[in-house]
Computed example of a mutant assay.
Amino acid sequence: MTATLATPRRAPAASAGARRRVVALVVAVVAVLLAVLLSLAFGSRPVTVDQVVEGITTWLRGETPTDIGAIAVQSRIPRTVVALLAGSALALSGALMQAITRNPLADPGILGVNTGAALAVVIGIAFFGLSSAAGYLVLALIGAFVTAFFVYFVGSVGPGGTTPIKLALAGAATTAALSSLVAAILLPRQAVMDEFRYWQVGNVGRADWGSLGVVLPVLVIGTIVALLCASALNALALGDDVAVGLGVHVGRIRVVAAVAGVGLCAAVTAIAGPIGFVGLMVPHAVRLVAGTDQRWLLPLSALGGAVLLTLADTIGRVIGSPGEVEAGIITAFLGAPVLIAIARRTRMKAL
């Protein structure tokens, strides 16, 4: 009798999962390109595809077009770039916070991080005459890190230590308190209320190339650090003991990932105000498609966040024409049902 050796085959489930992730990546890239086209084409003045092309090509050549539609396209390029980068950073920040806390409700908005950053900037503007993008960034970083530490401290007090529910409650209470302080500072100052009202809800329309250049190094470094942490975060999801056995320095990776997440959130808040729910919605949506592997989850979340915020900004300009509805309002409108669906689960499971 002749023994037949079976040829090793890749598990069908693993192969199907890999194909699904590749398809998701391709779809996400196409969605980013489509979101960019829609952002450039729609607003208070709709333009044609030819005008979009003319606006982009003349901008690349450093020229000023003569067509009014192409001029409108050129004026939308900075806010489109800011929306892409801000959405990407917020989604990455949310994914990192969910991974290191193993909390499905972790998000820069729910945990109060971006509100703390916004409060610090508003204080600098109202009481110290702050007006530079670099100053905004410094204060936003300080406010974000102080708030993150405070929320984690409050959420870890009491029996049971840190739990998803305690962190979410601490973050919600902190957000409410800090939002009230922002309103108390801005409301009596009617002269600047219109100019700085986006510090309450978030809006990418006020950012420009100068402010983007100031925060870009933080965004780039934070993104690189986040992606480099992916494999260690996968080990962390198996439990601290298993992660230590695999050679991961648990405390160090949590600190590094937390610093990257808070830094990304603070940089966005410094130029666009506190935009919520992007970091909550996008990682959950990506997780349904690509699974929990952080090596795929993080880059796909970055692409998904860019699409979400860019489309939210475009929708706000269209429905608010000739003015606009702030992108933070649109993301809150879309994110509230997601938060309710997560909160209504019978059990709060760790990720």
Score class of each variant (00 low, 15 high):
residue 207 A to Q: 02
residue 207 A to T: 01
residue 208 D to P: 00
residue 208 D to F: 00
residue 209 W to E: 02
residue 209 W to S: 00
residue 209 W to Q: 02
residue 209 W to T: 01
residue 210 G to A: 05
residue 212 L to Y: 03
residue 214 V to F: 03
residue 215 V to R: 00
residue 215 V to T: 09
residue 215 V to A: 13
residue 216 L to Q: 10
residue 216 L to E: 10
residue 216 L to H: 05
residue 216 L to A: 14
residue 217 P to G: 04
residue 218 V to A: 14
residue 218 V to G: 04
residue 219 L to V: 04
residue 220 V to P: 14
residue 220 V to Q: 06
residue 220 V to L: 13
residue 220 V to N: 12
residue 221 I to Q: 08
residue 221 I to M: 13
residue 221 I to C: 03
residue 222 G to A: 05
residue 222 G to W: 01
residue 224 I to S: 07
residue 224 I to Q: 06
residue 224 I to K: 04
residue 225 V to H: 14
residue 225 V to T: 09
residue 227 L to F: 10
residue 228 L to N: 09
residue 228 L to Q: 13
residue 228 L to K: 15
residue 229 C to W: 02
residue 230 A to T: 03
residue 230 A to L: 04
residue 231 S to I: 12
residue 232 A to I: 06
residue 232 A to Q: 14
residue 232 A to V: 01
residue 233 L to D: 06
residue 233 L to M: 10
residue 233 L to P: 11
residue 234 N to C: 14
residue 234 N to A: 15
residue 234 N to W: 15
residue 235 A to W: 03
residue 235 A to P: 02
residue 237 A to E: 11
residue 237 A to S: 15
residue 239 G to E: 00
residue 239 G to K: 11
residue 241 D to N: 15
residue 241 D to Y: 14
residue 241 D to I: 03
residue 242 V to T: 11
residue 243 A to R: 13
residue 244 V to K: 15
residue 246 L to C: 09
residue 247 G to Q: 03
residue 247 G to V: 06
residue 247 G to T: 05
residue 247 G to E: 02
residue 249 H to D: 12
residue 250 V to W: 13
residue 250 V to Y: 12
residue 250 V to I: 01
residue 251 G to L: 04
residue 251 G to M: 09
residue 252 R to W: 05
residue 254 R to Q: 09
residue 254 R to H: 06
residue 254 R to K: 15
residue 255 V to R: 14
residue 256 V to D: 05
residue 256 V to E: 01
residue 257 A to Y: 06
residue 257 A to T: 08
residue 257 A to M: 08
residue 258 A to S: 15
residue 258 A to W: 13
residue 258 A to Y: 13
residue 259 V to D: 09
residue 259 V to Q: 07
residue 259 V to L: 08
residue 260 A to K: 08
residue 261 G to P: 05
residue 261 G to F: 10
residue 261 G to K: 07
residue 266 A to C: 03
residue 266 A to R: 07
residue 266 A to S: 04
residue 267 A to C: 14
residue 268 V to Y: 01
residue 269 T to S: 05
residue 269 T to V: 15
residue 270 A to G: 04
residue 272 A to T: 10
residue 272 A to H: 04
residue 273 G to C: 12
